[in-house]
């Protein structure tokens, strides 16, 4: 475990806490894409299959349980909670995310470390995570104004994968046989997708103005 990876996991955890806070405190999920939340729940379920078979460390196990539980809780909240679900922007959240699931699954069948179910699902979860934010970014573009908590949520989510890239560089330099091309390339693509959001987020932070995304 190195500082970059710990920082990455903590910002990832922070993004989920910010989102839960926003939904719980305001009892509203306006501006949040349910499709992105469903994709993240799928990412964690597909990736953490080894939760009960391979024990890595207490930290690893606890974080996996937290990520699976929180992502399912958010999806449950947005779909079933009587108060929250009313504020869901159903007509704005129209990204066809089933194409993302299909496309990344096919890619995982072709590009994986080993043609076993667990490895294919792991690669699938890595590719899906890279594109899972797209429905959310499209929703933000459509709704134009970004409320602070949602903006912070997306910002921390982007920052976490950026820290992971530093972690992979560090591990590549310090561990003789560390190669993780699938996660690395996919992680770079994922961080790249946030680039434009980061740009507007930084501009709004510098001008101390409201975050506006060009429609």
């Amino acid at each position: 475990m190195n500082i970059f990876r710990l920082a990455g996991d903590m910002t990832h955890l922070l993004s989920i806490i910010v989102l839960l806070l926003k939904i719980y405190a305001t009892k509203s999920c306006s501006g949040i894409s349910l499709k992105t939340q469903e994709l993240y729940a799928l990412v964690f379920l597909a990736r953490y299959l080894d939760l009960f078979t391979d024990f890595i460390s207490v930290y690893n196990t606890i974080m996996k349980v937290v990520f699976i539980a929180s992502s399912l809780a958010i999806v449950w909240c947005m779909r079933l909670h009587p108060l929250v679900k009313r504020s869901y922007d159903k007509e704005l959240d129209t990204f066809r995310h089933y194409f993302l699931i299909g496309g990344t699954f096919v890619l995982a069948l072709v590009l994986n470390e080993k043609f076993t179910l667990q490895e294919i699902l792991w690669a699938f979860s890595i590719y899906l995570e890279a594109v899972a934010i797209l429905p959310q970014l499209v929703l933000l573009q459509r709704s134009g104004n970004v409320d602070n908590l949602t903006g912070q949520y997306v910002f921390f989510l982007g920052a976490y994968r950026a820290f992971y890239i530093l972690n992979w560089i560090y591990r590549y330099l310090t561990e003789p046989r560390f190669t993780r091309w699938i996660a690395c390339v996919s992680g770079i693509v994922q961080t790249g997708i946030y680039a434009d959001f980061f740009y507007y987020y930084f501009i709004s932070w510098k001008n101390n103005s409201k975050l506006k995304l060009p429609a």
């Binding site: 990876r5 996991d9 990832h12 391979d54 890595i56 690893n60 992971y164 972690n167 046989r177």
Partner: peptide
């Protein structure tokens, strides 16, 4: 044979 990279990352 190269031991499979253990998936120790989240």
């Amino acid at each position: 044979a190269q031991k499979e990279q253990e998936k120790d990352e989240l």
